[in-house]
Design a protein around this nucleic acid. Structure first.
Lengths: 217, 217, 217, 217
DNA sequence: AATGAATGAGTCTTCATTCAT
DNA sequence: GATGAATGAAGACTCATTCAT
């Protein structure tokens, strides 16, 4: 009996996630009211406050939810189509998967926008879940190992690529600036390859001058 | 007499820009009211509507204003310290300038955030001002020429680098994720150099497969 | 023209006072909403907040307003009917005036209730207005002088009597406990006379034992 | 078994009394919610309604509870320290006891405030309990008898004194107006003595004029 | 008897916008 | 052009009360 109640609660929480997601995407966060959310979810106003502190709380939890969903989708995509024979191809295919998703759902892109950011994403998850429990990261690390990629900072490499992909997608997909994504894609691939190469060059050493430049600007 | 009136108007407009800038930075756009803005500017509420349609109109114009200011500052910095002897150094120095500004003013970073995006930026300016009139771009193109850089898509190259810098700054400076900016900087420099190299490799050809991957995902 | 605006504002403020007074009396403070108040005053909801911070602010200002009104009414009553030939009669007549008002308007009594308290009353007025500017007190002091009353602590004497009258009125008028006011009145008069006598006995000295009792209880 | 259930119920009722008392004192009646009360009492929300009709019902029963407790405490104090040799001293000592309690617990004073009023107090008790069952009153009447006090209206005398003490305590202790209680105390004692004398003067007659004044005011 | 999730009417409060002066 | 009082729609949030378990 107790179990039924818990199930019921989870169901309501998910209904709120679902309805707010739709509304945020279609009308934006600012123009979505709690009234709208609960109405769409088929719940009473007060019920909202049993599950979330306020709209901001809901949003933050939703971003985490959606973002990890997206990464998991990418992960699934990869294991369902294990067609690659080198690391570079794998990385490019993941990037292309993100771009495909963004192109088919520009609202999603706008919503998670700069929230595809490592900051929010890792921050949000890190409290509850160790990295190893996020399948996408486990998968990434496995690929590194499997293909014997020599990389001192695999996380920074991934971070760099993801930030680049997210950021240029925003501009090229939503605003077609400076060019539409399809036109930009070959150049993006080229940049990604260059970044991969840069992080896996064995002879690399941090150049002290770089840091100096930044400080003395 | 006519002139005095015009000056007066400009002064009010700037007062509104200034006060809203401060308020947006410190309290965020959503929490800043028109009341706040006019009070800080020392004007009456009704006056606001003589200069801007609404808060959104003000914001859009302000972003343009601030962003071009930032680019101009970078430009000034460059011509005042013409110390570089190659193109790569020049580009890195510009990037470092942006990062320095962001580090000394994280609120500014948060505000323009993904507005350092080409989309908003170029879009906003393009209506009034042709590229050639933006000194920063003129400077950039001059540098390309001066250092005889072979690059088929100089604008895409710049776009790529700026998006990367803006995006990783957001994460590394505001959230120190995955690492603080000072730790990330050497790797960022490496990535930028790699991108520069990728765009200036003469033998490059767009790989049709890349586009294919993205489409078939 | 400017004057007209000010008049208009005062009018609105008074309308809010009036309507809230009626509603507080008839439905109680807790059950009166701001909606009710502005509706009765014929104003818009937002207008309320131009004049008062919230319902509590309105109440505090209203209590001061009403209480001083009541004292002024008593004062007027006295000067319009200057029939007394000694101080005691004057004091009793003032007390009787308060009681008459309370009996004819029990809601008023309940509202100012223990707010006829010196604390709230003096506190509220003292910031803006020195004692001498409250006609009732000036009148009281004049009577003291005129009838050559020998009293070291005229203010404490007045305080004692007013507290007693307010407090017993509450019980005898609103609850008819322990007896209705008309039955209690002769005894109240007797007590008041006794207090007057106690404060004007010239031979009096503070008894150290009294304070000792209270401390050692 | 039946007994255990009854004990359990009493325990819950008392828990609700205790937690609501604390909350009313510290946050006021209006700002205390039923949620707060049950949480502090460690009970479920629905349980509240098994014991009280609503918050008002709880408050009324609590006031009675607290007030009679206070009187009983005074009573205990008196019989534990039977040091007085006349009636006046006994009365003053009771008053001083109340004041001492109020000074050590101003929140208590504020809470029962004008609820030390005969109205609420007698009213509340009278339904269930005849006067004779309230030990304090029995004690009072015994003292009257024991010291052979000649007083036609001992209850009105007590009422008068208690109202005066409660009312001036409110002002002098909570607001230190017009003077702090310690400064006022000698004068309060003087007034109480005067009232005692007024009620026990054998030659007294009600003055018909007094009532007349009040009516014709 | 006890629970606590759910409800939704009810309130406060904000703020963009208007318009008479 | 400039003002700022007034508006009232809109939205966030609370909380007493119910009721299925």
């Amino acid at each position: 009996m107790r179990k039924k109640v818990e199930e019921n609660k989870l169901q309501k929480r998910n209904a709120l996630f679902q309805s707010s997601f739709d509304l945020f995407l279609n009308h934006g966060f600012g123009k979505t009211t709690i009234s709208d959310i609960v109405k769409k979810a088929g719940l009473a106003k007060g019920t909202f406050y049993l599950y979330f502190k306020d709209k901001y709380d809901l949003r933050d939890k939703l971003i985490t939810h959606i973002t990890s969903q997206l990464f998991e989708d990418a992960h699934q995509e990869m294991i369902e189509n294990p067609q690659d024979d080198d690391f570079e191809s794998t990385v490019l295919r993941v990037c292309d998967y993100f771009i495909k998703r963004f192109e088919s759902d520009p609202k999603l892109l706008r919503f998670i926008s700069k929230n595809l950011s490592w900051g929010i994403f890792k921050n949000a998850l890190s409290t509850d879940v160790p990295d190893e429990d996020i399948p996408f990261f486990r998968y990434y690390n496995e690929q590194i190992r499997q293909f014997s990629v020599h990389c001192e900072q695999p996380e920074l490499m991934l971070f760099t690529i993801i930030e680049l992909v997210g950021s240029v997608s925003y501009s090229c997909i939503l605003y077609k600036q400076p060019v539409p994504m399809q036109d930009y894609l070959p150049y993006l691939h080229r940049s990604i390859r260059a970044i991969l190469a840069a992080y896996t060059e064995t002879e690399y050493e941090a150049t002290p001058q770089s840091a100096k430049n930044a400080k003395e600007g």
